[in-house]
Design a protein around this nucleic acid. Structure first.
Lengths: 108, 108
DNA sequence: TAAATTCATCGCAAAAATACGATTAATATT
DNA sequence: AATATTAATCGTATTTTTGCGATGAATTTA
């Protein structure tokens, strides 16, 4: 009980949900925006930008990486992260497939 | 402790995160897709489509409504829900503003 | 009117998410 | 070599999420 029942849903629904969930926190949104701006790899400047403890930021980075939205490598003592544009494109495509824009009005 | 620190983030980051979070569950993705397909209002057929208990589906509907992604009204003994296209457009716009597509490659 | 349907809410239990300080391992600097 | 910086991980506390059965309020149907 209390566990997400992913098995009963389609792969695409699960994939979209996982990507959206990764974006579902303002800190992770801020991180993604930062990485999108400086398209080159960045490291712990993210910690300076995101107003949370270093360990918390590290945790959010880990989640973004697990979702495939960013990639990261160790560069000496520092860590280098950058955005995964393919994953972002995938998110957009899945969202488009799920709910293609419509002009129809809602009567509710 | 353990509470989301929304106050320290920008309004747009919070807004995008909230919309994304609402999409961050396969059941809610499935509900949205269903409502997007039948553009007219639907009611408890959603419960038949989503393989979860009625009370759980009701909860997910409540969350989607709270996020503004759907609207719902009572229609006699039944409840009528439909998708909020404006909110979906807003999500797309916020995502676009956060991470505008780039052709730049990542070296990580 | 009585029984059935529809669906929101309550109450609960288990799990996951969020946040932080402390620690650790690695590399850099002095 | 000793110290400092960088960043991941651990441990922990709190909150939130997820899920379901049961209940209740409303409307429908018989």
């Amino acid at each position: 009980m209390g566990t997400r029942k992913t098995a009963v849903f389609s792969d695409t629904d699960n994939e979209l949900a996982e990507l959206a969930k990764a974006l579902g926190h303002p800190a992770r949104v801020a991180i993604l925006r930062e990485l999108a701006q400086r398209n080159m790899c960045v490291c712990g400047e993210i910690v300076d930008v995101v107003p949370l403890a270093q360990s918390t930021v590290s945790q959010h980075l880990k989640e973004l990486k697990a979702a495939g939205l960013i990639s990261g490598t160790v560069e000496g003592a520092k860590s280098c992260y950058c955005i995964n544009w393919a994953a972002l494109a995938r998110l957009r495509a899945l969202l488009e497939a799920c709910c293609p824009p419509s002009a129809a009005a809602c009567t509710c």
